[in-house]
Nucleic acid binder design. Structure first.
Lengths: 196, 196
DNA sequence: TAAGTTAGTAAGTAAGTACTTACAACATTA
DNA sequence: TAATGTTGTAAGTACTTACTTACTAACTTA
C-alpha cells in the first residue's frame, strides 16, 4: 500500500467504519474488516489510532464539529424562525443520509453505558440539538408567528424523532426515500404544531 | 442449577438478552454472559435454543405477538379514534419502558442486512405499526373530527419517532422520565397536527 | 547524503466468540 | 422399577477479536 499521512488515514478509517455499519451492520466493524475495506494491513490501523474505541470517539467528535456545528450556524443566523426551522430540518436529514451509519453507531454506543466518556459525548450531541430546537421555537413565539401556548421542549422531543425515523426508513428502504421531499413534508407537520 | 422446562428457560434467556442490552449494552450479549446472568452453564443455553440467532428471532416474534398484537387490538376496538390514538401511544411507550432493550436490538438488527429473515421480521413490525396509525388517522377523518387535508402516512412517520425518542431518552436519563406524562404531552402535539 | 522519523507489513499474542461433546442426575411413563 | 426422555454440567472445539512485535521501506530534514 502506498504511504499516506495519518490525517488522511484517520479520515479513511472513520469513513470505513460508517460505511461498514451502513452496508454490513454494526457487528462487522472489526479491525480486520476495517483494514480489508481500506486495503491496509490490520497493524496499520493501530498506527493511526491507539485503540478501536478512539476511532468511535473520533467519529463522535466529528458529529459534534460537523453536524452540531453547522446546525448551530443555522440557528444563530439572523433570519425568520420559520425558514430557519426548515433549513435546520433539511440539513439534519441530509447529513444523516450522507452518513448513514452514524445514527446506528450513536444508538449502539448509548447502550454501552459502561463507557462514560462516550455516553457524555452522545448526551452532548442530543442535548445541544434539543436546545437548538427549543431556541428556534421560542424565537418564533417571540416573533409572534407561533402559538405561545405550545411547549418548546415537547416540540423539541417530537422533532428529535424525525431524523432518526428517516435514518431507519432509509436503511430499510435503501434507495426509495427522497430526503428533500421527506423534510418538506415533516416541516409542514411541525408547522401545524406550531401555528396559532 | 435446579431443573426447569424449556418453556421457562426460553423466557428467561430472552429476558436476559433484553436486560443485558439495557444494562450493559449491545456488545455484551455473548452466550457466556447470558449464561452467567441466568446462573446456568453456557451449554444449557444451547439445550433450549439451537443458535444465538434463534434467541434474537424469538424476541422479534414476541414483539410481533405481544406489542404488535395488543396495538392491533386497540386499533380494532370500536371506539372514537381520538381516545384510541391516546391509548395506542401510551401502550406503545409503556411497552418500550418495560422492555428497554428492544428498540436497541431491533435497531442493530436493521443494520445486519445480510440476514434477510430477521430484516423481514423487522420490516413487518415497523410496517404494520405504520398501517395502524394510518388507519386510525383515516378513521378519525371519516368521523369528521380530524382535518381531511392531512396526509395519514406523514402522520404515521412523525408518530413512529415518538416511542423511539422515548426509548433513547429513557436509557440516557435512566429513571427521570415518566411514561404516562410523556405520552400525554406527545398526544397533545399529535392532536394539533390532526385537528382542523 | 546521512540520520531520524513516519507509515507500512507479516506474523504473532491472549482472550473471547458461538457452539459441541460426553456424560450425569433427575423426571415421566410402561 | 426399569426404560426413556429431559435438563443440566465441565471441558473442549475452531474461529475471531483487539492489539503487539519485529522489521522494512519511504519520506524529511541537518
Amino acid at each position: 500500500m502506498s504511504r499516506e499521512t495519518t490525517d488522511i488515514r484517520q479520515e479513511q478509517i472513520k469513513k470505513a467504519v460508517l460505511d461498514i455499519i451502513a452496508d454490513e451492520g454494526l457487528q462487522n466493524i472489526s479491525t480486520r474488516n476495517l483494514a480489508k475495506r481500506i486495503g491496509l494491513s490490520e497493524g496499520a490501523i493501530f498506527r493511526h489510532f491507539p485503540t478501536k474505541r478512539d476511532i468511535i470517539k473520533g467519529i463522535m467528535e466529528d458529529v459534534v464539529n460537523d453536524l452540531v456545528g453547522s446546525l448551530r450556524n443555522i440557528v444563530l443566523t439572523p433570519e425568520k424562525s420559520e425558514s430557519k426551522l426548515f433549513k435546520y430540518l433539511c440539513h439534519n436529514v441530509k447529513y444523516l443520509k450522507e452518513n448513514r451509519g452514524i445514527t446506528m453507531l450513536l444508538f449502539s454506543e448509548a447502550a454501552h453505558l459502561g463507557d462514560n466518556e462516550l455516553k457524555e459525548k452522545l448526551n452532548q450531541i442530543l442535548y445541544e440539538q434539543k436546545q437548538f430546537i427549543i431556541k428556534m421555537v421560542k424565537d418564533g413565539i417571540s416573533e409572534g408567528v407561533w402559538d405561545k401556548s405550545v411547549n418548546a421542549e415537547d416540540v423539541a422531543i417530537i422533532y428529535m424523532g424525525i431524523p432518526i425515523t428517516f435514518n431507519i426508513e432509509f436503511i430499510l428502504n435503501k434507495n426509495g426515500l427522497n430526503a428533500e421531499n421527506f423534510c418538506k413534508r415533516m416541516y409542514l407537520l411541525m408547522l401545524k404544531i406550531l401555528q396559532k
